[in-house]
Write a protein that binds this DNA or RNA. Structure first.
Lengths: 227, 227
DNA sequence: TTTCTTCATTGATCGAAATCAAATCACGCT
DNA sequence: AGCGTGATTTGATTTCGATCAATGAAGAAA
């Protein structure tokens, strides 16, 4: 981690709106702010590795962090992609447990770190923190269930279509937006090789999707839903 | 649910050793026992469906419960299989949330049910319960991460080999054991069609695995690790 | 035991996506 | 603007596992 620092005004602001802190009472927020350390990560920097003793909880302030597991021969499988406001490392909450995955900054990122021991200490006194942790975990578990089922039930073009739809307003109107990160990252998140993502996009051209760089235009969300 | 009842001596015993209650202090255990309702599920009975408002937490006492998601056309994808001691439904802990998956008894099962409102109420007063919930969720999240990565990194025979190895002592000695459930269930848990599981078993015969019914003999765990 | 039903195996075919290879594009940097 | 590296696209091939179909085995009920 390049620079370590106490949270400044901007960082406090972001942290306050994060998934973990937004539901806390003022005293718990203060306690967490007290132990927060802000760090600036260059792209590709590793936060922690699978199997290491877990000693830190992380929260993304800006940028994206990729969670993946490694094969004995070095191949990587992404299991989650966390963005601003997301909590990282809660899968190793239990005292003495180890990280189940490796976490790597997918682009230059700002993150907050909390010493796990002290988090546990605060959580044992303040139920609102403990509840917030449980809720965050609960939501994450649902998300991963969804990914796993999506993987097993849908083809690559369908998964891509569903991803695009999840970033649209639910009304049936045309939209256009910018992908929040590189296509290769998106491919990993969807469990695809980059080539497969590319082919999926080109197939979806027939279903009202236009892609140019990171810009996506969806002319007919309804058609997309039927892919 | 066939019969509803207060926990008897046997059920209390099992509950005490379950993942959720085993870490609690006596008072929290008492509070949870107070609100526990035991039910007997016939095979194939649905506990709850994806999308329903979540109002209950469940704990498996005996048997197995299968969690799956449905496709628009009715195909099912298993995301988790819970056995004795496991906590179900914690992915919908947040007040007002809905079940993310459908839960179905895979065989005749005994389960304990806890009213979620009252669980939240107790958890807000007693941090040990709250912590135990968070820990259970944390462990579940790790497991699902592992499944997801396993799916993406390994072939069917490799997944089966890893499953078998995870049920062996870590020493390199030969073992034999009984599969805890039907092969079709195992196939679902591993994200395979039953045919694929069958083929994987027959391929693994060349690597020191003998299967007859639910009986599995592993003559050379080392060879299996190298598949 | 006999019957009936469900589960498991085996074979054949098909489709989806990984992989390998090469060409093209985009962007940050000087 | 021009370079150069890395990202993306496209094509060809191959592998893996789903699916369909049919047979065989096992377990439950009478």
């Amino acid at each position: 981690m390049n620079r370590l620092m106490k949270p400044g005004a901007r960082e406090r602001e972001t942290l306050l709106n994060s998934g973990l802190l937004s539901a806390l009472g003022v005293e718990s927020v203060a306690a967490m702010m007290e132990i927060a350390v802000i760090g600036n990560l260059p792209a590709r920097q590793i936060l922690f590795r699978e199997g290491e003793p877990a000693d830190m909880l992380h929260c993304v302030l800006s940028g994206y962090v990729r969670l993946y597991k490694l094969d004995p021969d070095g191949r990587e499988a992404d299991v989650e992609l966390y963005g601003p406001g997301d909590l990282i490392g809660a899968s190793a909450l239990l005292d003495g447990s180890r990280y189940a995955v490796t976490a790597q900054a997918a682009e230059p990122s700002l993150i907050a770190r909390f010493d796990l021991k002290r988090v546990r200490e605060i959580a044992s006194r303040r139920t609102d923190l403990c509840t917030a942790l449980a809720n965050a975990l609960s939501a994450q578990l649902s998300r991963v269930f969804a990914s796993l089922a999506d993987d097993r039930l849908h083809t690559a073009p369908q998964r891509v279509a569903r991803y695009l739809l999840s970033h649209c307003a639910p009304d049936g109107r045309a939209v256009s937006f910018r992908l929040p990160y590189q296509k290769s990252l998106l491919a990993g998140k969807l469990g695809l090789a980059p080539e497969a993502l590319s082919r999926a996009f080109s197939l979806l051209r027939n279903h009202g999707v236009n892609v140019r760089g990171r810009l996506v235009q969806i002319t007919d969300p309804e058609a997309l839903r039927r892919v």
